[in-house]
Design a protein around this nucleic acid. Structure first.
Length: 497
RNA sequence: GGCGCCGUACCCAAGUGGCUAAGGGAGCAGUCUGCAAAACUGCGAUUCAGCGGUUCGAACCCGCUCGGCGCCUCCA
């Protein structure tokens, strides 16, 4: 398998440090607000990386942190006049819920900064001791000039950084690029006792401390959004390598942004909206919304930017609907089965498997992998109309399930799939804020299955006595409630929401 | 200002030196159907922002131009 490594700026053959064990650390979120679609993308991308590694037969230790102490958390607590711990608890729960709805598997370890204070303090102390950091009035700074490899990850030279520096000038720093490892706490702020007085860790040190603690001094993959490359990951590399004297993460993997009107989704632009919002305003049940979002998020290569819109989402939904339509037919036993094309199924399945792995092995090319699924859909549809035994259909369905697993797709029970179109409208208001406007016509869970079955029975009787006007009237009535009827060749009728 | 990414059909999106430029969505036409849906078949880029160069050969390599975006500040 090949992965694009930000460190070397090229695709590299991925080989873990220790035979079949892959150690992965992914930067999680700072828990001071609800997660937005950008967070969803990062989470899904690395979830797929993890799933695919397991699919390939690796064992994976997957660590994803929560940053649970930070200026933004303190500010939010101050603003809302609540304890900061309450903010943290609330948003960790919210994030966990989002992840669950997106079908992102739970990491093996979910460390929190506040639970690693001894390691963090010890690491800073040693950096000071080794001459890579210095203390000023209770603050501790990392001295960029003392480490020769600074800028390696982000591809910057120190002079360039200085030339373009927009960093707030702090006269006390030896170099404007020096960054805080430890921040002295002001009265009333949360603080932990340390050799430099009461304070809290800087943003970057926690990830170094937690990754080293849970994965060792050198581990395989470190991931996160592209915006973390500089300064966050650059700083992590600097402080970690200075601390351990050895290599830190071997492969750095970064995902592209989610954009709105081709601009990065971000808090400051106000063009973001939350994962929670999409689920709550969607007219589908969570499993269907989650699947649609996953499909959408994986339909573009992870390193490219991905533009979000209501149109893009409904296109994704249509594409997934067509797959589930096939799944339903694969699961129906067909009493009119005639031909025998079971043998003809072998070749497309084999070819698909080969292409799927080829795509995924090539730097996690999920758009290509998805295209292969679509191609297979066409092949199987053809065979299906020619006639496939129930056993062959089961086998075909098995392939979708098996190869969909690494993407986290096709796992919704077909009876739970909802075929109704997307009815949530996304709009960017003049103010620059993004809103989801609801235009839901159909209540969730309505009408009842029993009612639909009754109408189908009524319609069948009408059709039998050739009263097509009545039959069409019933169809219209049922459709007005969001249910579509499909007559099958054997005279039975299937229906879908 | 420094560094970097991107520009492929109506929309989304693979492909990055050589078979007919994947796949999806939308559209149109046809087959099937009492009607419909689904499915299937056909149609759709002589062309990959533009110009120039390298090469036997380029969407893919190089240069310039135009357009869009990102990082350099908290950010997935």
């Amino acid at each position: 398998m090949y992965l694009f490594n930000t460190l070397t700026k090229k695709k590299e053959h991925f080989v873990p440090l220790e035979d079949d064990l892959v150690r992965v650390y992914v930067c999680g979120v700072t828990v001071y607000d609800d997660g937005h679609l950008g967070h969803a993308r990062s989470a899904v991308v690395f979830d797929v990386l993890r799933r695919y590694l397991i699919f390939k037969g690796f064992r994976v230790t997957y660590v994803k942190n929560y940053t649970d102490i930070d200026d933004k958390i303190i500010n939010r607590a101050l603003k809302e006049n609540r304890p900061w711990t309450e903010i943290v608890t609330q948003y960790i729960e919210a994030y966990a819920r989002d992840m669950h709805r997106l079908k992102v598997s739970k990491p093996d370890v979910e460390p929190r900064a506040t639970e690693h204070m001894p390691e963090i303090i010890d690491m800073i102390a040693q950096l000071v001791e080794k001459g890579f950091a210095y203390q000023i009035n209770g603050d501790v700074y990392y001295e960029v000039g003392a480490y020769k490899g600074y800028g390696r990850l982000s591809g910057r030279k120190e002079e360039e950084l200085l030339a373009g520096a927009r960093v707030e000038v702090d006269e006390r720093k030896k170099n404007p690029m020096d960054f805080a490892l430890w921040k002295a706490s002001k009265p009333g702020e949360p603080g932990w006792e340390s050799p430099w007085g009461s304070g809290r860790p800087g943003w970057h040190i926690e990830c170094s401390a937690m990754s080293i603690r849970h994965l060792g001094r050198t581990f395989d993959i470190h991931g996160g959004g592209r915006d973390l490359v500089f300064p966050h990951h650059e700083n992590e590399v600097a402080q970690s390598c200075a601390y351990t004297g050895q290599e830190f993460a071997r492969y750095w993997v970064h995902n592209g942004f989610v954009t709105i009107d081709d601009e990065k989704m971000s808090k400051s632009l106000g063009n973001f909206f939350t994962i929670k919002e999409i689920f709550e305003k969607s007219n589908w049940k969570d499993s269907v919304t989650g699947e649609t979002l996953r499909y959408f998020l994986l339909s573009t290569h992870y390193r490219s930017d991905l533009n979000f819109s209501d149109k893009a989402l409904s296109e994704a939904k249509s594409a997934v609907d067509n797959l589930y339509d096939l799944f339903r037919r694969l699961e129906e036993s067909d009493s009119t089965f005639k031909g025998d094309n079971d043998q003809a199924l072998e070749r497309p399945l084999k070819e698909f498997e080969k292409q799927f792995e080829g795509a995924m092995d090539d730097d996690l090319n999920t758009p290509r992998a998805i295209a292969e699924f679509q191609r297979l859909r066409g092949e199987i549809n053809k065979l299906l109309s020619a006639g496939l035994s129930n056993q062959a259909k089961k086998k075909a369905m098995g392939s979708f399930l098996k190869f969909g697993a690494p993407l986290g797709l096709w796992q919704v029970a077909t009876k739970d799939w909802e075929f109704s179109p997307f009815t949530v409208k996304l709009s960017v208001a003049d103010s620059g804020t993004v809103e989801l406007e609801e235009s839901i016509v159909i209540e969730k869970g309505e009408p009842s299955d029993e009612w639909v079955e009754q109408q189908i029975q009524r319609r069948r009787e009408a059709r039998e006595r050739k009263d097509f006007a009545e039959a069409d009237k019933i169809r219209k009535e049922v459709e007005s409630k969001g249910v579509k009827l499909e007559d099958r060749p054997d005279g039975t009728t299937r229906w879908k929401r």
